[in-house]
């Protein structure tokens, strides 16, 4: 078995119990919420009390909690996430329409945060204690204290209301008739501010992580040796110090996936982007519990996938990872 395949198998074995707990948790929340699937369905279609009893029997909702749990799990296994009252459609369809927008927003935000954050981190960490380092460290701390939704509002005030450079909301111009590159450009203009709002906050985290890793690396013997050999400082900074500080940054991308998805709820709401986060807010406002739990399950699935991707990337970058897995497993 190849090394990458071993990493994959070991991670998948760990995912199963976690997924079972998450599904059990959402089932408990669903049970705790007032009303059930029949109430939800009839709220959008209408029907009398006799129909309620009949549907409850037909859907197995009059059985005990364990039977209901089994019903819930087998429905999930068929990708049936229940019925959304708010949209009068199956939950899975509503989520399917929204998920791409959120993935685009998150992908761009992560790219911005990791790229700019680690670049600034290299600037700060190349000379720890310097004026640039002090300014960047304090600035990142201040940025980290800013709530995403408020940063979004401030960006709207500056760039949309005052300067009129960028649109202040929406995913693209409605009924613009644009296709191809022109449409991509239009979406890009709409996403610039939300990506800036979501990305800037997490940028601070990568800056601090990169800087801390570099401060640590400067103390290592191999860096002292490189300094003693008289290598150019630029070469030491990039090839010896920054390179070793990069691995924790990659780990953090996986760990931050859940936080970022949570942050997209408020940012999507501020910028009126029809994505998963805003869907969660709409579900809460319309008291649509199955839809909200569907979004949560989808979010948990995305987090698991993101971490799996990070693990594989890690295994690819660092040849030590997974090499001794045969004996450990």
């Amino acid at each position: 078995m190849s090394r990458i395949a071993r990493i994959l198998v070991r991670r998948l074995a760990g995912i199963v119990p976690v997924a079972v707990i998450v599904v059990g948790g959402t089932f408990l929340l669903l049970e705790a919420a007032p009303g059930d699937a029949v109430d939800a369905y009839l709220a959008s279609t209408g029907g009398d009390r006799a129909l309620v009893e009949e549907l409850r029997r037909a859907w197995g909702l009059d059985a005990g909690p364990l039977a209901r749990l089994w019903l819930y799990i087998s429905a999930l296994a068929h990708l049936d996430l229940g019925w959304s009252v708010a949209f009068s459609r199956p939950v899975i369809e509503v989520i399917g329409q929204r998920i791409a927008n959120t993935l685009l927003l998150m992908g761009c935000s992560v790219a911005l945060a990791v790229f700019v954050g680690s670049l600034l981190g290299v600037v700060a960490g190349s000379r720890p204690g310097s004026a640039a380092d002090r300014a960047l460290s304090l600035g990142s701390l201040a940025l980290y204290a800013v709530p995403g939704f408020w940063l979004g509002l401030v960006l709207i005030v500056v760039f949309s209301v005052e300067l009129r450079w960028l649109p202040g909301g929406g995913f693209e111009t409605i009924a613009s008739g644009l296709t191809g590159l022109a449409r991509a450009g239009d979406i890009g203009r709409h996403l610039a501010l939300p990506v800036a709002a979501l990305g800037s906050i997490y940028l601070a985290l990568y800056l601090r992580l990169m800087r801390a890793g570099m401060v640590e690396a400067w103390r290592q013997d191999f860096v002292r040796a490189a300094l003693a050999r008289g290598l150019p400082r630029r070469q030491i900074v990039w090839k010896h110090v920054a390179r070793n500080a990069l691995l924790p940054v990659i780990t953090m991308v996986g760990l931050q996936a859940a936080t970022l998805l949570g942050g997209s709820v408020v940012v999507e709401s501020v910028f009126a982007i029809p994505g998963l986060g805003r869907l969660a807010h709409e579900a809460v406002v319309q008291r649509d519990t199955p839809l909200l739990l569907g979004v949560i399950l989808t979010g948990a699935g995305l987090v698991i996938l993101a971490n799996l991707a990070v693990d594989l990337l890690y295994g690819w970058i660092d040849p030590r990872v997974g090499a001794g897995a045969e004996t450990m497993a």
Binding site: G14, T289, V295, G299, I304
Partner: peptide, 23 residues
């Protein structure tokens, strides 16, 4: 530890939304 991992897998803010909306 699996329970802890499960709580870390669900986006915290979505969990908060769910708890507040149910309770």
């Amino acid at each position: 530890m699996r329970l802890t991992e499960a709580f870390q897998t669900v986006p915290g803010f979505l969990l908060a939304l769910a708890i507040v909306s149910v309770a």
